[in-house]
Amino acid sequence: MLTVWAILIDGFIYASWLFLVAAGLTVIYGVMRILNMAHGSLYALGAYAAASALGWYYAGGGDQLIMAFVIIAASAIMVGALTGLVIERGLLRLMYGRDEVLMLIVTFAVLLILEDVIKLIWGTTPYSAYQPYAAMGRINIDVLTVSGYDLMVLAVSLVIGVGLWFWLERTKVGKILRSIIHDREVSEAMGVNVRRMFTITFMIGATLGAIAGGITAPIISVVPGLGVEVIVMAFAVVVTGGLGSITGAAVGAVIVGLARATSIHTMPELELFIIYAVMATVLIFRPNGLFGQVIARKI
């Protein structure tokens, strides 16, 4: 029974992190039909920005946990929104309407460029911002102890998930975005500024990726190559759940998170294999993912 509790707790905590990473990726694909491989570098930029800002804050004598969270949010939002705006306006806007595979290659090139930009700015020395993680201590759940920071990440992922659902389903902007998803040409004919909505969407998706990196920074050692590792995991989640579906990203994150936790506690040698085995199994029976929709081809 103890093992079951450990699997559930570890699985849902890891799933919350996976959802934070994958949310921005699936938002961008759902609206723009762009599988943004540069999302991994946006995550890394958020992690580096947050780690740097926290380092300056604590080096200057700061010790307020609330202020540390404000710094994480502000630094991640600023770097994510600005970088997303530059990528969308400076590159992607010139290529709308091109084949999805070409857009995939272009964003992968952006990923490689940003990885080198990160090394130029921050170097190759690892960054650490452990103070918020240590300050939140550990919480006893039955006979298990769980990091308070990990539970906070779980709460943040729930808030972001509900917020995205409300934004897409209950707001005017969300309804406009859903109309673009359904038929871009008709939306343009009805007077919707599709390009402006694309800019807003990409900036939001990029910001979500940077926020995920910023929140993760106190848990890990921020090192070069971080974005490449993350984009692979995010891709596995969104493909499992269905590209473009927020619900699918959440369900896919839970499935992958629980599968990984089960493997770690029972067969640790299969930790990496099990993630891709889950993805492959789902795609065998649901080629478009659990919540993916078949898009009619226009002729």
Rank of each mutant, 00 (worst) to 15 (best):
residue 233 M to S: 05
residue 299 I to V: 15
residue 102 L to D: 10
residue 96 Y to D: 02
residue 12 F to E: 03
residue 68 A to W: 01
residue 44 A to E: 00
residue 251 V to I: 15
residue 7 I to L: 02
residue 196 R to H: 11
residue 116 D to G: 02
residue 299 I to M: 14
residue 181 I to N: 12
residue 213 G to N: 02
residue 178 R to Y: 05
residue 288 N to Q: 15
residue 163 G to R: 11
residue 31 V to K: 09
residue 150 D to W: 13
residue 124 T to M: 05
residue 145 T to G: 02
residue 121 I to G: 05
residue 22 A to M: 08
residue 45 L to K: 10
residue 273 F to D: 00
residue 256 V to F: 04
residue 82 L to W: 09
residue 243 L to E: 05
residue 279 M to C: 02
residue 166 F to S: 07
residue 278 V to N: 06
residue 293 Q to E: 15
residue 108 F to A: 05
residue 249 A to Q: 08
residue 270 L to N: 03
residue 254 V to I: 14
residue 219 I to E: 10
residue 291 F to K: 10
residue 114 L to S: 02
residue 222 V to Y: 01
residue 196 R to V: 09
residue 268 P to D: 10
residue 277 A to Q: 01
residue 99 D to Q: 15
residue 214 G to S: 03
residue 17 W to N: 08
residue 205 G to D: 01
residue 149 Y to W: 12
residue 143 V to T: 07
residue 139 I to P: 00
residue 49 A to N: 10
residue 187 S to Y: 06
residue 219 I to V: 13
residue 243 L to Q: 02
residue 233 M to K: 14
residue 288 N to M: 14
residue 24 G to L: 13
residue 267 M to I: 09
residue 264 I to S: 06
residue 230 V to R: 12
residue 111 L to G: 04
residue 101 V to R: 09
residue 65 L to I: 06
residue 55 G to L: 15
residue 179 S to Q: 14
residue 117 V to P: 03
